[in-house]
Amino acid sequence: MTPPGSVGADTDNPYALAHLDALESEAMHIFREVAGEFERPVILFSGGKDSIVMLHLALKAFTPAPVPLALLHVDTGHNFPEVIDYRDQVAQRHGLRLHVASVQEFIDRGELRERPDGPRNPLQTVPLLDAIEKNRFDAVFGGGRRDEEKARAKERVFSLRDEFGGWDPRRQRPEPWQLYNGRHSPGEHVRVFPLSNWTELDVWQYIEREEIDLPAIYYAHEREVFSGSGMWLTPGQWGGPREGERTERRLVRYRTVGDMSCTGAVDSQAATISQVIEEIAASRLTERGATRADEKVSEAAMEDRKREGYF
């Protein structure tokens, strides 16, 4: 079987755009709509590949002028050091204002409690909403894609959040054509998802085409890991390995980048972008299924978190 990655190499129609151009153009349209309609937009930037592609698209959308957007990172305190370095370099290189909302600070102040089972991903919601409110951000770009998860498949490109940051899937605004309705009352904000129609493979093909730098953990590397929740986790102060679990050195890479306590690595030999693309095209697991321990909890885990204001 030809991998789907080979799609689009040939098109007979001279008027048609190749699919990456089409997706890119759509994302540009979304960025410019936000720039035209909102006062204080911000990009959620985690240093993960989706947010990196999002920033790359934003830079292109407003060229030759600088990007009229700030960056916001919700730091769980358990981030990969390579990713934090990357984040700081990018902000500096493009002269962007970087806001950091720290989960650790909230825990230290007693406003959040560590979960007994470890993962800090669900704890990000409170610092995120706090940062949005304090900085009066009215449009918040997220790198969420509809192919990631069932609840996300139902999300609009412009998704209204109430003053508590909540998402009500039953009261979403219809979004026909490309007419995005970003009207909101004071205190409310709109989450914007320019990568809605991209798949994991699209993101990687775009990274290859645009020669975008990524943190090294996206490529195969040797790492001390232990098996937990059915995936390879990096040992650390967040509670691993437990007794009876042994660490071992393996050749792995990360398909997603999140909180180290619940983001798993996959066995991989893919050291280059094209090898990664080959590997994804052949994979029998979804990106989140392979790498996220916290979403195996329940069928509606993502919907519930989104309702509370998660990404």
């Binding site: 789907p4 799609v7 699919h19 192919d147 498949a153 139902k154 798949t199 493979l201």
Partner: peptide, 14 residues
């Protein structure tokens, strides 16, 4: 209830 978007590809098209 709501529209769900799905993504798939064959060798000819996405």
């Amino acid at each position: 209830i709501d529209v769900a978007y799905r993504y798939f590809a064959t060798p000819r098209r996405r």
